[in-house]
């Protein structure tokens, strides 16, 4: 049985806009758990409430109501105790002191967590090797590339030795090569260090590649909480590309659209293709009944491959609210 290391319960947070004095609900009754050693993707479109949720988990923002417990410690009642179990790389590239060197940054942040230089010296060496920053250890951070700065920020979070690491957009603004390197490093951390990691990212490849489970937030609410593979399977099963011999008449097209509003019709010179995402897998029979009744000849049927980005867009756009369950 898996043990939750983070328990988020009924979190709510509203902010008052400075200019309009209007109250904005950033997070509206969010609950989820993260198991020990799990890597969870926290996703959502811009303004969905991801960063506010992350900061409430970190103890940097106090919720209006609800609770967050980390390793069984309530982070409102015993904030500092809870923070021993958590470290974070927050969005943006300013998690570091630009006028300190790589090593000085690591030593300084470890010092601020109450650790002596001697205590962390060998761990710093290890991390510098692991993050391929050894040759840059005496370089000032402002002279490093964006990718190196990001790697250093993750190394600093690792140095804290906490059970949980929160990474807010860890690959944002990185070129493809560095993004891939960071992704590999994160995979290594999960594999070798047994850390619990929460990632927010707009890069769905990162999520699909690294996360076991995702919590998708939209308008401050959890809309999906499921394993990545389940979500992919769920949508893959219901996405089809049907190649027809010839073209549909306007009436036939309308008839199909009435029944399957999400159907896309793509006529070619000789053939035409129907792309359809079905709400329920048995709907395929109904589609074939119509095609048979209308005597529309079918050439081939393919199950469409779907990536996590498409799954995410479908969920966020609310097209599959009914079908997507909360199964975690």
């Amino acid at each position: 049985m898996t043990t939750p290391i983070i328990e988020v319960q009924n979190l709510k947070k509203s902010y008052k806009k400075r200019k309009t004095k209007e109250w904005i609900t950033a997070v509206n009754d969010i609950s989820f758990t993260v198991n020990k050693g799990e890597i969870l993707g926290l996703l959502g479109p811009n303004g969905a409430g991801k960063t506010t949720t992350i900061k409430m988990i970190c103890g940097l923002v106090r919720p209006d109501s609800g609770s967050v417990s980390i390793s069984g410690i309530d982070n409102q009642q015993k904030r500092l105790q809870a923070q021993e179990h958590i470290s974070a790389v927050l969005e943006g590239n300013r998690n570091l002191y630009w006028r300190l060197t790589v090593r000085e940054n690591m030593e300084y942040f470890a010092g601020n967590r109450g650790k002596s230089r001697k205590e962390v010296a060998s761990r710093i060496d290890e991390l510098l090797q692991q993050f391929r920053l050894k040759d840059k250890e005496n370089e000032m951070v402002n002279r490093l590339s964006r990718g190196m700065q990001q790697k250093l920020a993750i190394a600093v979070a690792m140095l804290a030795g906490s059970d949980v690491i929160l990474l807010d957009e860890p690959t944002l603004g990185l070129d493809i090569e560095t993004g891939y390197e960071v992704r590999e490093l994160l995979r290594e951390i999960v594999r070798n260090e047994q850390k619990t990691i929460i990632i927010t990212s707009h890069d769905m490849d990162v999520i699909q590649d690294l996360c076991e489970r995702t919590v998708i937030i939209n308008n401050g609410k959890v809309v999906t909480n499921d394993r990545v593979e389940n979500l992919l399977k769920l949508f893959e099963v219901r996405a089809y590309a049907i190649k027809l011999e010839g073209h549909l008449s306007e009436e036939q097209h309308q008839l199909l659209l009435e029944k399957f509003p999400l159907l896309e019709y793509k006529p070619d010179t000789v053939h035409s293709i129907l792309e359809v995402d079905l709400t329920q897998s048995q709907d395929i029979y109904e589609l074939f009944d119509i095609l048979k009744l209308e005597q529309i000849p079918v050439d081939t049927i393919d199950r469409k491959t779907i990536n996590f980005e498409q799954v995410f867009l479908k969920i966020v756009n609310g097209r599959d609210k009914v079908a997507v369950s909360q199964r975690a």
Binding site: L60, S87, R94, R113, G114
Partner: peptide
């Protein structure tokens, strides 16, 4: 301005001690 204040806020020692 630098964005490091939040990192200090993450310290289990508490910002006041820092």
């Amino acid at each position: 301005t630098q964005g490091t204040l939040e990192q200090l806020g993450m310290s289990p020692m508490g910002i006041w001690k820092i």
